[in-house]
């Protein structure tokens, strides 16, 4: 798809994204650079990046991937180790990490899609992948049982700072880029094909769509974005170890994607940022007396949405909009960005 065509088609959304990111970027000034709040915001923003990336494989291609942290941790640990062992800047390391995650995704995805594994089996396979990597990195020959730390040095060379605002702004810039990637996918031939695959694989294939190829492309793109952001995640987390291959958080990313509404970028953004901020708020306020209360709420939300509103937040928004404009003719671009 030509760039000019893409800009014309998505102008409204590009503008919206830029405004949203600018508003988010301005928040530190309002909260007086409160470091604790900035940590929460950074966490929410990086999860938003993860969920928007997940939207490519989960929302467009319709594959319930539960393995996000396989790629996040792998890419992040590769970049971190390059820095720790060889003093290679993460500006290079993150690209290497993205590449390694993409290669892993291709190696897993090729046979998986070749043999037609989907639905529950795909979900299980990706969930198992996180556990496998967790176990492998736990071996003493790999990372062992210890927590590993990034070098104490700070600065843009290390993409690591004594204060959170820089990394927060960096994540926001990445968020804008990942949203643009999504928009591009959504509006291009790939997006149409992925949605068709999600809706009906057999019918899609009969229309000449190479189902395996497009699913693999979606998976690799998703994994590369996650692998790239892995180092930033480690910077926020402070340490890395085999625990970075985190099953519950992998599932949480899929959950936020579903609550947002499959294939909806705005839904993914809203659900990730809201849920993560609410989560941190609840953890800070009543989390000490009732641990896990935020996750309990996730669970209930998921059940309610699954039963009553399978289209998620985006579906709720759509039906509200429809009620308001009923009677008027609806004009819309492609898909449901």
């Amino acid at each position: 798809m030509a760039l000019s065509e893409w800009v014309r088609e998505s102008r409204k959304y590009i503008l919206g994204t830029i405004i949203l990111v600018l508003v988010l970027a301005f928040i530190p000034f309002i909260i007086g650079f409160d470091q604790y709040l900035l940590l929460i915001l950074s966490t929410a923003a990086i999860f938003a990046v993860f969920v928007v990336a997940w939207n490519i494989i989960g929302g467009y291609a319709g594959q319930l991937d539960l393995g996000a942290f396989a790629y996040i941790a792998l890419g992040g640990i590769v970049a971190a180790q390059l820095l720790v062992v060889y003093n290679i800047t993460p500006w290079i390391g993150m690209f290497v990490g993205a590449g390694v995650s993409a290669v892993l995704a291709a190696a897993i995805g090729y046979p998986t899609f070749r043999f037609g594994i989907k639905e529950v089996w795909y979900a299980l396979l990706t969930a198992a992948l996180v556990v496998i990597l967790n176990n492998i990195f736990h071996l003493p020959e790999v990372l062992g049982s210890l927590d590993h730390y990034l070098p104490p040095a700070n600065g843009w060379y290390y993409l690591k700072f004594p204060v959170y605002e820089n990394i927060y702004w960096f994540i926001l810039a990445m968020l804008a880029i990942v949203v643009f990637i999504n928009l591009w996918v959504s509006k291009s031939k790939v997006g149409y094909y992925l949605r068709a695959i999600r809706e009906d694989e057999l019918a899609a294939e009969a229309l000449g769509i190479d189902v395996r190829k497009y699913k693999l492309e979606a998976l690799v793109l998703y994994a590369a974005i996650l692998g790239f952001m892995g180092y930033v995640y480690i910077v926020i987390a402070g340490t890395y170890s085999y625990h970075t291959f985190d099953s519950p958080h992998s599932i949480a990313i899929a959950i936020m994607g579903i609550i947002g509404g499959l294939g909806s970028i705005a839904g993914a953004l809203t659900s990730a940022i809201t849920l993560k901020v609410v989560e941190e708020y609840l953890r800070a306020s009543i989390g000490a007396t009732i641990p896990g209360i935020h996750l309990l709420i996730y669970g209930l939300l998921l059940i309610i949405i699954g039963i009553f509103k399978p289209d998620g937040l985006a579906g709720i928004y759509e039906s509200l909009k429809k009620r308001r404009t009923s009677g008027r003719k609806k004009i819309s671009g492609g898909g449901n960005p």
């Binding site: 031939k189 068709a196 769509i209 492609g334």
Partner: peptide, 28 residues
């Protein structure tokens, strides 16, 4: 019938047209 339930009629037919072009505008 094997409809693409969550795609519009026009988008569904566009999917077919994309077999012979890479331009979504043209396919549409």
């Amino acid at each position: 019938v094997r409809p693409f339930k969550k795609m519009t009629v026009l988008d569904t037919v566009t999917v077919g047209a994309l077999l012979r072009t890479n331009s979504v505008t043209e396919a549409k």
